[in-house]
Each structure stands twice: as structure tokens, then as C-alpha cells.
């Protein structure tokens, strides 16, 4: 059947597209932040599936692995995704705090109510 990484690639990209779609169409601020997390999740899936090698195990050299070079998956994308996830959390937390403050000002969560700065 299809290779594993093709499936995950498709899922990752479609998650990104869905996230972007949510970002662009949803008016609710919380929904926008959620769409951001979806885009991030999609990207992370994309990164890991690009780093996947056929029929290989996790990059941890315990008893079962004798010759690491032939048996492990590429560790670098995993390291990158690790950092990216935490950064994603940081940004989501900050965005939510902004959303709280914005909601307090205008008592609404609709993004089109916050148009004080234009032209």
C-alpha cells in the first residue's frame, strides 16, 4: 500500500491547510489561536515525516540496536520539532493573554471589532 511517510505527509499538509483556512475565515479570536495550534501541529507532522526513513526505529541506542547508522531514523528533525513545539506553546500562551486583554477592552471576541488603527 502507500508508504507511511506519504500518508503522514498528506495528513500534515492538510492539517496546515485546514489551520490556514481556519485562520483566515474564523472571526472568533480563540478560534484563530486554535487554528494557529493546528498549523503548528501540521508543520510538526510534516517535519517528522520528512525525517522518517523506511523501516527504521527511534534514535535511541539501547540494547536492541547494534549498528546505529543502519537502524535509526534521522534525529535532527526530531530535535527541531522538540524545540518548535515548546516555542508553539510559548506563542499560544502569549496570544491568549493578548486575547484576554483585547476581550476585556471591547467585551467581544470578534476580530473585526478591533479596528482602531487603520489607514
Amino acid at each position: 500500500m502507500m508508504a507511511l511517510e506519504h500518508i503522514t505527509l498528506i495528513i500534515g499538509s492538510s492539517l496546515i491547510l485546514l489551520g490556514l483556512w481556519g485562520l483566515i475565515t474564523q472571526k472568533n479570536l480563540i478560534k484563530i489561536v486554535i487554528s494557529f495550534t493546528l498549523v503548528d501541529a501540521g508543520i510538526h507532522i510534516l517535519m517528522i515525516s520528512l525525517g522518517y526513513l523506511k523501516n527504521r526505529t527511534a534514535p535511541i541506542v539501547d540494547g536492541t540496536i547494534d549498528n546505529a547508522v543502519e537502524q535509526i531514523v534521522d534525529p535532527i528533525p526530531q530535535a527541531m520539532v522538540l524545540t518548535a513545539i515548546v516555542i508553539g506553546l510559548g506563542i499560544t500562551a502569549l496570544m491568549l493573554s493578548f486575547v484576554i486583554r483585547l476581550a476585556k477592552d471591547k467585551n467581544s471576541l470578534n476580530v473585526s471589532n478591533f479596528k482602531d488603527l487603520k489607514w
Partner: peptide
């Protein structure tokens, strides 16, 4: 499934 346990744990815990 993509044999990335570390990332899975992080994603689960944080994500």
C-alpha cells in the same frame, strides 16, 4: 508510528 518517541511525549504532554 514514525518512530519518534521523544517528540510524541512532548506533543502529548505539552500539545
Amino acid at each position: 508510528l514514525l518512530s519518534a518517541p521523544d517528540v510524541a511525549m512532548t506533543e502529548a504532554a505539552i500539545g
